[in-house]
Amino acid sequence: MNKVYLDVTELDKCVCVVIKDKEVIKAGITVYPMSSNEKNENYQQYADNYDIHFIFDDDIPKLSFYTVPQVDIFATDSEDGLIGSVGSMTDLESDSPICYINNNKKCFFIANNLKEFLEKTDNWKNNLKPYNEVVFYDSKLEAEKELRFINI
């Protein structure tokens, strides 16, 4: 089946695109911020105890690269690393793998999904495994030189 790519960085909403005889792959780096009104002691405990700093809308990190497939960043760590869902928007009910991207753009597998990640936060950095499923580009323009994108 032929692959085509959908840039999700410019979409305001979650979409599902089906094209006959094509596999549609979401692409781009996105951020899943929570409302700063949701900040509470529980989120601060994740930061203090596990070095997981969930992203809130008053402190969104600047990202200077493009990924295929999509990685939706929902947290950072104290080493400027990023934690995100691969292939879809962050969702507690999703089966999207969770990855860690260090500040050298090396990607590591953390967990099979967000629920699993949240269950093993106490030692998440000790269980990182190289994850070659994410390709990094400097920009969408660079990705377009190699991949066929669709517009909706």
Rank of each mutant, 00 (worst) to 15 (best):
S96N: 08
L63H: 08
S64W: 12
I52V: 15
L118C: 04
I152M: 10
V4P: 05
Y137S: 06
M34W: 10
D138F: 06
K62L: 13
F108S: 13
F149Q: 01
K125N: 06
P130A: 10
Y5L: 03
E119I: 03
S36F: 10
F54C: 12
S88W: 08
D59Y: 06
N49M: 14
L114M: 14
L114D: 00
I101D: 01
F149T: 03
T121D: 05
N37I: 11
I52N: 02
K13M: 05
P69E: 08
N42F: 14
N2S: 12
V71I: 08
Y5I: 03
E79Y: 14
L128N: 01
K13R: 13
I152E: 12
V8C: 06
E79T: 12
A27C: 15
I55V: 14
F54M: 15
N132H: 14
V15H: 02
T67S: 15
D7H: 01
K22R: 15
F56T: 07
V134I: 15
K62R: 13
N40T: 00
L6N: 05
D91W: 06
A143E: 11
D95K: 11
V71C: 04
L82S: 03
K105I: 04
N37Y: 14
P130F: 04
G87L: 05
E23Y: 11
L92H: 11
F109A: 02
V18N: 09
E38S: 11
D57K: 01
L141R: 15
G81N: 07
V86S: 04
N42I: 12
L141P: 02
Q44Y: 12
D51V: 06
G81A: 05
L147R: 02
V86M: 08
C107H: 07
P130E: 11
C16T: 15
S64T: 14
A111L: 09
H53S: 09
D12M: 12
N104S: 13
F54G: 08
D12W: 08
T9H: 00
T76E: 04
